[in-house]
């Protein structure tokens, strides 16, 4: 008896619930018929017919909007200012791309861990989020020409600046963050140097400031910014080991968009666009001295060590961890 009754309420409740769900479903879909959604539904329709996830150059131009994945909390590369506008070195470039394509830019806030996924699913057209070129990533996404260098750097106190790793004595310790390129590089190439490893940027920083190590090795963008923000410290070695590059990335196989970005980077090189970008966005953090070290103009990496960078690319995947750790500060 009891069961029968329950079944009856259940039946009516289920019908009701289904009705509610369908109604709200329709409601929210129609309420949010924004242009962005229209383009994404177009994209998904496209993808079902052609089994490709990305939008070609023509499709982007036609839709009048481009989705670009950037960081929203990595000052000075990609961040949001007090008026809610995206700013930074990557964003400056993104704005130029949008302007030259003649489309409106829809910035998508990405996290380091989800950048590849965004491209693999075509949810953004381009990722411009301080994306280091590595072999592993290049299997999943297509990188365009580079627009910035990133390498390792070593910072040490001003009164005992270490300008060469050979100056480090047998008893001295060097601070690194676990899982970063710095750790892998030093372990592989300088096995005699004693390392002090920390899990986070904050603990490494505190320890370094308390003098437990003679130097701190990390991504050069990190150590340079550190030395500028903290007087009393100097970057003795601004560029060490494998030189990696940062480049725009598009979905695997999206050759029309890739070719366009490449030709755009080459032609922007003629007007020294990335130097202007540096002076507009990075100079406050890194100063004039590092402009040539960091900027890659026209997609041409000046340093010959860049070619060997790709062979050592597998070690560089961990550089992302360094960026992550730094955000903890």
């Amino acid at each position: 008896m009891k069961k029968n009754y329950l079944k009856r309420i259940l039946a009516s409740a289920l019908t009701l619930a289904l009705g509610v769900v369908t109604l709200t479903g329709c409601g929210s879909a129609s309420a949010k018929e924004s242009p962005a959604e229209q383009t994404s539904s177009e994209a998904s329709a496209q993808e079902q017919s052609d089994s490709k996830v990305y939008r070609t150059l023509d499709e982007i131009k036609e839709s009048g909007e481009i989705n670009i994945g950037v960081f929203s909390d990595k000052n000075p590369f990609g961040y949001v200012d007090e008026n809610g506008e995206y700013q930074g070195y990557d964003v400056y470039f993104a704005n130029k791309l949008g302007e030259d394509l003649g489309v409106k830019i829809n910035f998508v806030s990405t996290e380091a861990a989800s950048r590849v996924e965004y491209l693999e699913t075509g949810k953004v057209d381009i990722v411009l989020a301080n994306f280091t070129v590595t072999e592993e990533r290049a299997e999943k996404v297509d990188f365009a020409l580079p627009y910035m260098n990133v390498a390792l750097g070593v910072v040490s106190p001003k009164d005992k600046v270490i300008k060469d790793l050979s100056e480090i004595k047998a008893d001295d310790q060097v601070i690194v963050i676990s899982g970063t390129t710095a750790e892998t590089y030093l372990e592989k190439n300088y096995p005699d140097i004693k390392l002090q490893k920390f899990d986070t940027y904050a603990t490494a920083k505190t320890s370094f400031e308390n003098g437990t190590g003679v130097a701190w090795a990390n991504d050069n963008t990190e150590v340079i910014a550190y030395a500028i923000e903290n007087p009393g410290y100097e970057v003795g070695i601004p560029s060490l080991g494998s030189q990696d590059t940062i480049a725009p990335a598009v979905s695997k196989g999206n050759s029309t968009l890739l070719d366009w970005i490449n030709s755009e980077i080459e032609s922007l090189g003629k007007e020294n666009f990335f130097h202007a970008d540096y002076e507009a966005t990075l100079i406050d953090t890194y100063g004039k001295d590092y402009e040539e070290t960091l900027v890659v103009e026209g997609g041409k990496v000046a340093d010959s060590s860049a070619t060997e960078a790709s062979s050592e690319a597998s070690t560089a995947t961990s550089s992302e961890a360094a960026t992550d750790a730094s955000s903890a500060e």
Binding site: D73, K74, Y79, V80, S109, S114, K123
Partner: peptide
């Protein structure tokens, strides 16, 4: 925030970083 939605905590991080 991991799937790109900018909610209150993410805005906070953006403000701190900026």
């Amino acid at each position: 925030m991991m799937i790109g939605i900018v909610e209150v905590l993410k805005v906070g991080q953006q403000i701190i970083e900026a």
